[in-house]
Design a binder for these strands. Structure first.
Lengths: 341, 341
DNA sequence: TTTTAGCACTCTCCATTGTAGAGTGCTAAT
DNA sequence: ATTAGCACTCTACAATGGAGAGTGCTAAAA
């Protein structure tokens, strides 16, 4: 589809554009890369590339700029040789993450900060999705009369606590039996499945009318709602240092999207389904509000099941090679560290 | 210190400046407010006010702009008649907050969003400071062999869970005795006090060498570290719509400060000590990085003790009257709602 | 046939200029 | 003590024009 020389020119243009924004002209390309061709020839090739949709001229007689399609071609092509990336980066990454094993939340917070400081783009991490976590055990602890603290243990090692109010007359032994019932009935199921089961049971239970079970169901319905994953975002201010953001409207647009955490959670949730590192370039971006930016995302896993997502958001003019490496490595590290816990 | 007429002119200038930025001239003042004075007279008064440090000229032959000192005078003066504020605001506020009683975290998140949407500035809320919470009870729950889930109940109704690893050989009965020991020894103390006690005990305990107590202390030292308060920030993008932020450097400065959550937590922590609504204007701001912005902050309480802080951050040219009302009301609502739980 | 040199043309960027508008300070008159 | 009038100052904005960079095309060279 693209002969060798054209590809080289395309990559050269992309390389130049990544290093500094602003249209790149034919003379610049001949200077930085020694193809042994004159600017005029390069111009012809670039003209061809434009016709094919890989490059674009912001206006007549300006240099060329890669299109989303151009980037896509580039990203697909470099996916193989990504391991050639900077070793220092990998070391730095490992060193920083090692320090934060203790607590998953501050760990993910730190991971987001790291993603951004390494890439100079925005780093995002999300805590494990609770709705697909599998229940390991429930503890019910009474306090302050009518309050009940519910502690959920999951196989993923994720603990959640929720507080609900209960009938103050319920006896301690009944409470214990409720806990036992829940554990027997639901252990091993995902929270999503449990929620579904509870709904099913509740319609049926109205007929059976067992005091204990109905009490248990009442408690369950207050517990097993899906808590949205915590989101850690870092590096917004750093990214604004890039020359890409000289326009205030662009900044506002970006910040508005970043503030709507709900939106991002939903996006990452969707990505969590498939595994492996994914790249969305500009208009390919699943979020309408984020067309104009690129997203490099990956997932971390428990065993073989993806349980959370991380990513980097940057301008379309992104150093994809580096970003992909960073996201990839970080995801692997998180997976690994979770498995040690 | 300031005669009545001068004060009126000062307030008029501030009012104009709040409504739209840009130096305000003498003619504008005479037009909006009917003092029955000519622009020339106003000019003379403004000139006096400038000499006294309440106003400032960005450059010769521009209008005047209030200084931090001018705002300070204004804020001190209006503190009394703050209840005259918009009733609709208060209603809207109550309605939104009512919906979020369930969970303190999403509640505070929502509160931050509300602060910002009502004021059009940045809204900030912080979850209760854990280090001054008083311990009510501890539960230790073993899981996955060498893991221990520690559940801290506090008088404030705040539950925290932490996971630590322990010697897998420790028996269940010993674990129970450790929990009992901690509860007897430490219930009623603040987490800060407990941490101090633990440190004291540990140096002494080396001599005594009681297996059980030393085990308890080891666990305690892993539990009672101060977890920084969760911070909820909202409305950054909304604030950027203000004409004050036409300059990119200013935006970057602001975002950088906002991203350093640690810094803000420390600031609000400090404010939590004293109660009542506080106003910091521009250079008065305790944070060097935030001189140039104003902060209106208040605390919410458990009983009479302040346990957390909320606030609004905006440009020095802020609608202080409104901001103070909003912060004040919100703090009171939070206090009230916490007391019902 | 492919590559290159040359040249006219186009577009952006930047500094300069000029003008309108807003506002002040001062002085003299009320 | 207040006000009208006037000269002066500063900003914002639009218009202008040249420098620089880059292209497209054509004709010559390899």
């Amino acid at each position: 589809m693209l002969d060798d020389r054209s590809r080289q020119v395309l990559f050269a243009v992309i390389q130049c554009y990544i290093d500094s924004p602003g249209p790149v002209g034919s003379r610049v390309v001949t200077k930085r890369f020694s193809f042994g061709l004159s600017p005029a020839t390069i111009r012809n090739i670039m003209s061809d590339l434009e016709e094919m949709g890989f490059l674009r001229q912001p206006h007549t007689s300006a240099g060329r700029v890669p299109t989303d399609l151009g980037y896509r071609y580039y990203v697909d092509a470099i996916k193989e040789d990504r391991q050639t990336v900077n070793r220092d980066l990998i070391l730095e990454l490992g060193r920083q993450l090692e320090m934060m094993r203790r607590d998953i939340n501050s760990f993910l917070d730190e991971a987001a900060r790291m993603l951004s400081s390494l890439s100079h783009y925005i780093g995002i991490t999300m805590s494990p999705n609770t709705s697909t976590a599998t229940l390991s055990r429930v503890e019910l602890i009474r306090y302050r009369g009518n309050r009940l603290a519910v502690i959920l243990f999951t196989d993923e090692g994720l603990i959640q606590n929720k507080i609900i109010s209960v009938d103050p007359d319920i006896s301690a032994s009944n409470l214990r039996r409720v806990a036992e019932y829940i554990n027997e009935e639901f252990a091993g199921l995902t929270l999503d499945e449990i929620r579904q089961r509870v709904i099913d049971e509740m319609t049926r239970e109205r007929v059976l009318c067992d005091r204990l079970i109905s009490e248990a169901m009442k408690i369950c319905s207050g517990i097993f709602y899906a808590a949205p994953g915590n989101l850690y975002i870092s590096g917004i201010s750093e990214m604004l240092s890039l020359p890409d953001f000289c326009d205030i409207r662009r900044i506002k647009e970006l910040l508005k999207t970043m503030e709507d955490r709900h939106l991002i959670v939903k996006l990452l949730d969707k990505l969590s389904i498939s595994s492996g590192t994914q790249v969305f370039i500009g208009s390919e971006n699943p979020l309408d509000e984020m067309k104009g930016f690129s997203l490099v995302a990956s997932t971390y896993k428990e065993g073989n099941r993806p349980i959370g997502a991380i990513g980097i958001i940057g301008p379309t003019r992104m150093n994809y090679l580096q970003a992909i490496s960073i996201v990839d490595m970080t995801a692997n590290y998180i997976t690994e560290i979770l498995s040690y816990r």
